[in-house]
């Protein structure tokens, strides 16, 4: 029954690696073709946003005076003029502007989701772990914040403090974590009843250490899935705000602002102004959704 072996450090150093749940999930994720395709598309879009400024022959705020006034003919996409995606109504290079818009949109999505993950997870797990009155008070705060119309606050914020990217981040960050806090709290309540948490309490582990070592790692699967689905919804919010004319400020732009500009000129025979940004927008969102689906299937195969 009992097997005698050396228990010195050298024997332990050669101990075989175990198959962690994360390693399992990674394997399942990479077997999912749609998710991997989404990941590739997203990587291409990110590379486009990062490398674009170096390969674009034009700057995003530079006006091509040769094009201005005859955008329908001179401003169409062509390799000769260097306007690969054509120009917008003011003669600015659409390729450079799409690169710039992609940067802003991805940043808004990722920063919004990151705030949600960090703040929402910690807030929710603390509320769920301590329970009782702490939980009641903390979750009522979330309920109150949630009952305030989101768009209204965001619009007000941008009108009162002026339109800037910072304000946009503040506004989105302020609200994005609420749903996440609720999800984290619900999951924590379920985990709190598990025996391994009880074992840690009985051992005398400090509550905050229990939250960080035992609760959060077990929440992470759900959180990651929700976060990847939160990124596109943040991008959509930002696009909507920009579409209303309240988002980023000229000459900066975003996917939503570009689509807005393109849509305004739809009838004037300059469809590329709409189609290029729209293509990136749709491809980006699809990529995020596929990755989110793939992660969900990979991380909790039981819940399918």
């Amino acid at each position: 029954m009992r097997t005698a072996t050396l228990s010195d450090a050298s024997a332990l150093a050669t101990a075989p690696k175990g198959r962690s749940l994360w390693a399992d999930a990674r394997r399942r994720f990479f077997r999912n073709r749609a998710a991997v395709a989404g990941l590739v598309v997203l990587a291409l879009i990110a590379a486009f946003a990062l490398l674009g400024p170096w390969i674009a022959p034009w700057d995003y705020e530079e006006i091509d005076w040769a094009v201005l006034g005859s955008v329908e003919t001179m401003g169409r996409p062509s390799l000769e003029t260097g306007h690969w995606f054509g120009t917008d109504q003011l003669g600015r290079d659409l390729f450079a502007r799409t690169v710039q818009g992609t940067q802003i949109s991805l940043m808004v999505g990722i920063v919004g989701a990151l705030i949600a993950v960090v703040v929402g997870t910690l807030y929710g797990s603390v509320a769920g772990y301590f329970g009782g009155r702490v939980d009641g008070a903390m979750m009522r705060v979330v309920d109150v914040l949630m009952s305030i119309p989101y768009m209204f606050v965001l619009i007000l914020l941008l009108v009162v403090f002026g339109r800037s990217i910072l304000m946009l981040f503040v506004g989105i960050g302020l609200i994005s974590w609420l749903d996440m806090a609720r999800i984290a709290r619900g999951q924590t309540l379920a985990l709190r009843g598990k025996e391994f948490v009880e074992a840690a309490i009985a051992t005398g582990v400090h509550p905050f250490r229990i939250i960080l070592r035992h609760i959060v790692p077990n929440l992470l699967g759900v959180i990651i899935v929700y976060a990847t689905l939160l990124v596109p919804s943040m991008i959509i919010y930002e696009s909507f705000i920009s579409f209303l004319g309240l988002g980023v400020q000229e000459p900066l732009t975003s996917w939503g602002a570009l689509i807005n500009d393109g849509a305004a000129e739809m009838r004037n025979g300059t469809s590329w102004q709409l189609l290029f940004p729209l293509g990136f927008f749709v491809a980006g969102l699809f990529a995020f959704f596929f990755i989110g689906d793939g992660l969900r299937d990979a991380l909790d195969p039981k819940d399918r």
Partner: peptide, 28 residues
């Protein structure tokens, strides 16, 4: 960390587990 590893190894042997299983996960 080194002393802890040694103690864990001893304890695992004491309860009849191979000490080189330390990197495995509970579901295994």
């Amino acid at each position: 960390a080194k002393e802890r590893r040694t103690r864990v190894g001893e304890m695992m042997e004491r309860v009849g587990l191979l000490p080189n299983l330390v990197n495995r996960y509970p579901h295994e």
